[in-house]
Amino acid sequence: MPKRILSGTVTSDANLQTVTVSVERRFTHPVLKKTIRKSKKYRAHDPENTFKTGDKIRIQECAPISKTKRWEVIVG
């Protein structure tokens, strides 16, 4: 099964080797037919601490690194 890739904005880089990424998705409400925006935060592994708050990045699924980290930053 392929690994999921998401793109989002870094909202926090306070922890070492970790960034918090906010990923927004848009969908149409089934009854109201209105476009809705929902966001979710993911904790991603950033080994070199290269990304700062406000950066647009892509993250990819990986094996669990810690209790909350199951994503890694894609470089390139």
Score class of each variant (00 low, 15 high):
Met1Val: 09
Pro2Ala: 07
Lys3Leu: 13
Arg4Ile: 12
Ile5Pro: 00
Ile5His: 01
Leu6Met: 07
Leu6Pro: 00
Leu6Ser: 02
Gly8Phe: 00
Thr9Ser: 03
Val10Pro: 02
Val10Lys: 01
Ser12Ala: 15
Ala14Cys: 10
Ala14Pro: 01
Asn15Ala: 14
Asn15Gly: 10
Leu16Trp: 05
Thr20His: 07
Val21Gly: 00
Val23Ile: 08
Val23Tyr: 04
Glu24Ala: 08
Glu24Ile: 05
Arg25Asn: 06
Arg25Trp: 01
Phe27Asn: 04
Thr28Cys: 05
Pro30Asn: 07
Val31Pro: 04
Lys33Val: 02
Lys34His: 04
Lys34Thr: 06
Thr35Leu: 10
Ile36Cys: 03
Lys38Asn: 03
Ser39Ala: 07
Lys41Ala: 02
Lys41His: 06
Lys41Gly: 04
Tyr42Cys: 04
His45Asp: 08
His45Thr: 04
His45Cys: 06
Asp46Tyr: 10
Asp46Phe: 08
Pro47His: 13
Pro47Phe: 07
Glu48Leu: 06
Glu48Lys: 12
Asn49Ser: 09
Thr50Lys: 11
Thr50Ala: 13
Thr50Ser: 07
Thr50Gln: 06
Lys52Gln: 04
Thr53Lys: 07
Thr53Asp: 03
Gly54Cys: 01
Ile57Cys: 11
Ile57Phe: 05
Arg58Phe: 00
Ile59Ala: 01
Gln60Trp: 00
Cys62Asn: 12
Ala63Val: 05
Ala63Pro: 08
Ala63Asp: 08
Pro64Leu: 08
Ile65His: 11
Lys67Met: 12
Lys67Pro: 13
Lys69Pro: 07
Arg70Val: 08
Trp71Val: 04
Glu72Val: 12
Glu72Ile: 12
Gly76Ala: 15
